[in-house]
Amino acid sequence: MKLHYRVDGPDGAPLLVLGPSLGTTLDVWQPQLASLTREWRVLRYDLPGHGGSAPATAGMTVDDLADAVLDLAADGAADGAADGRFAVGGISLGGAVATAVAAREPGRVRSLVLCCTAARFGEPGPWRERAATVRTRGPATLAPVLASRWFTPGFDGGWVVAMLERVDAESYAVCCEALAECDLTGRLGAITAPTLVIAGADDPATPVGQAVVLAAGIPGALLKVIPGAAHLASVERAGDVTAAIGDHLAGSASWSAGMRTRREVLGDAHVDRAVAATTGFTADFQHLITRYAWDEIWNRPGLDRRTRSCVTLTALVAGGHLEELAMHVRAALRNGLTPDEIKEVLLQTAVYCGVPAANAAFAVAQRTLAETL
C-alpha cells in the first residue's frame, strides 16, 4: 500500500510523521506546520482514498496502515536521521496507526503524539452501520453530523469539513470497518517512546475517558486535556495543541539524546534490560534519568567521558552505592579507562572517602573486572 504524502521542514532535521483523522486529509495538520517545521522534518500522509492517496483495498486493517507508514518513515528517516529513528503522531484513526507503529517498532520510535484517539473505538456495530451509509450515500452526506462531533457549537471549521468532498466512499467505508475491528489495548504496554496523549474536553467521538485508557496503558505517558475543544482539538484549539506538542517533542529530543549516550556508556544489553523492566510505576523515573543524567549532564561539553567516569566512580564509593558501582566500572571501561586507572581512582577514594568504603569498592571492582575482561 502506497500513501500520498508531503514533506516540509529543513533537510537533516529529525523526522516527524503525522497522520490525519478519518474523513480529513494531511492538510488537517496545517495549523501546526509552521511551528513544527522549525525543528522537525514533517512528513504528513493521506489515508487511503483520502486526498491524494489511492483507494483502500477490502479488508484493510490498522496494522496494514501501520505497515504503510513504516515504509514512509523508512524513506523519510533516511534523509533526516542516521539511526533511522523518527517521531510519529496522529489524530483519531491516524493516532491509532501511530499507536500500532510505536507498539510494533519501539526501537525506531523516538516520540509519540496521540491526539483525540483511542485504543478501541467503541462497539463495532455503529462503525459498520456508518460504512453501509457511506457506500450508499457518500461521505459528504455525513458533513452536518461530523461537523457537530469535530467542533464545539459556534466554531467555524468549514475548511476541514470540506475535505470530505475529496474522500472516496468505498475507502471511507473500509476505514470504518478497520476502526470497528481495532483494539490496541493489550499492546499499549509495549510502547517505550515518550508519549503525549491529547484529549478534547468536549470530544464526543473519543471522550476523555478513552484518552485516560491510553495514558494509563502506555508507560510514562502524559495526558493533556484541551478545554473548549471537541474531536479535532488540533484545529479548534490550534495554539494550545501546538504548544503541547512542541513542548513534548523538545523533551523527547533530550530523551533520545540521553538514551543514545546511555547506550554508548552502559551498553545495549544493560539498557535493554532496564527498558524491558520498566513499568507504569517506574517509567517517569526512567525518563527523568535518561533526560537529565544522560543528556543534560553526561552530554555537557565541559568534561570528557573518561573524566565523568572518574567522578562517578568516586561519588558512588563516597555514597556507598555498591550496587551501582559495578555498572559504572563496566561503563568506565567502555569510556576508555584501563583497569590500572580504575585502581588509581579507588586508591584516591581510600584517602578522601575512607578505607572501609574503598575496601568494599575494591572488592566490587575486582569482581566486575574479572567478569568483564
Rank of each mutant, 00 (worst) to 15 (best):
V160S: 13
G217N: 08
A215H: 01
R135A: 02
A229D: 08
A215F: 01
E181T: 04
L196F: 06
V225E: 13
E236D: 03
V197I: 10
A221M: 07
K224W: 15
V197S: 04
P153K: 04
D168L: 07
A173M: 06
G220H: 01
V208M: 13
V235I: 14
T185V: 06
L164W: 06
E236A: 01
A132I: 02
A190Y: 04
L179F: 13
P153M: 08
I226F: 11
F155R: 05
L188R: 00
L232G: 04
G189L: 00
G228E: 06
V167Y: 14
P219Y: 09
P144S: 01
D183F: 09
S148G: 06
A211W: 04
E177H: 04
P139A: 04
A162R: 11
V160D: 12
L179E: 12
L232S: 11
P144K: 00
P227V: 00
A131K: 06
D183Q: 04
G186W: 12
S148K: 13
H231N: 01
D202T: 05
L179N: 12
A178H: 11
G209Y: 09
G157T: 02
A147F: 09
C182Q: 11
T133S: 14
G189R: 03
T192G: 10
D168N: 07
R166G: 06
A221N: 05
T185I: 03
G157E: 10
S234W: 12
P139W: 10
R137Y: 13
E165H: 14
L196H: 05
P219H: 05
W150F: 14
L232I: 08
D203N: 02
C176S: 07
A143G: 03
G189I: 00
G138W: 13
A140M: 12
A211N: 07
R166E: 14
